[in-house]
Design a protein around this nucleic acid. Sequence first.
DNA 1: AACAGTCTCAACCGCCTCGAG
DNA 2: TCTCGAGGCGGTTGAGACTGT
Length: 355
Amino acid sequence: MSRKPCCVGEGLKKGAWTAEEDKKLISYIHEHGEGGWRDIPQKAGLKRCGKSCRLRWANYLKPDIKRGEFSYEEEQIIIMLHASRGNKWSVIARHLPKRTDNEIKNYWNTHLKKRLIDQGIDPVTHKPLASNTSPATLKTSEFQDDDSNRDDQSQSGSMSPKSLPPSSSSCNLPEISSSDETPKIDGSLSSKKRRFQRSSSTSKLLNKVATRAASIGNILSASMEGTLLSSTTLSPCLIDDFSETSQFHMDEFDPFSQPSEHTIDHMKDDNGMNFDLNSSEYDFSQFLEQFSNNEGEEAENIGGYNQDLLMSDVSSTSVDEDNMMPNITGWSNYLVDYSDFVYDTNQDCDAKNFI
DNA sequence: AACAGTCTCAACCGCCTCGAG
DNA sequence: TCTCGAGGCGGTTGAGACTGT
């Protein structure tokens, strides 16, 4: 019972679109709006199938599409998200405003994938090619922190598998450096030469934030499912580190790390949230209420691309608990990914710095 | 200049999801 | 509950551009 292909039809044109066809499609959509793609060709006077029209519009003609060279930040975001999400181009595209999934997919296949391979990284697993070193080994040998950080790693077992980036091996995500074999002659070249100059404490902090976020996600999950007990094991990170938060010097952050700075603040006093998760009396309903109350204005107050990126998973959060959990999970996933990324791109990627 | 090999990316294909009836 | 179809998604293709010889 195979379905009839939608684009089977007599005299339907295929291949590259002409300017005239584009004009007809744009004109029709401007007048009638998107949707009803099957009927559009006939109504717009196009000898194309509806699907082809939709793709042409979505990938090329839509006015808010950003075209041209990918920025350094965009590249890093793609690599990060690919490491955690795989070939989920539409998901990745949601984090890159004005970029289409098709464009990202093409860019990955033609540029980033090769670059990773050139740098000895498996573009599928984001692990070193031809390496026997397990991520766990790398983590413990290269990313060993103080006691709390060791706890961070050991507690990762309490995190949902989804929360863990597939590529937890440190230093796997490559830096896009100017030494790339395929240099681009464009405005983004200079940005490609930039390197993140983050201190080890920054990486450390971000890792902790990520772990906390993941833990909060788990706790919320348990709360949603009604399985949260007062004895629910909390992340050692949460237990040990929340009191330490204020020790970190946030002024170390560069603009790209602002989301985490925001996150720290978000998790601290700004929202007046009680994050004393050590307490068995922690009130999750209060947390949910506070979170939902603060979410809207938070989203308005923060500015900048990366904040948008960070918050995109939670920006639509309402009091609706069904939506809450995926958002929290996405948020924690992002932080975990981002934390790993920051660590990986840190030039001081050396265990000594964390001891 | 001509040709072959390589690269890029718009477009296509086929499967999947989800909502309507 | 089932069927159908629109729209979405990821993989693949192929025409044109580019590069090397």
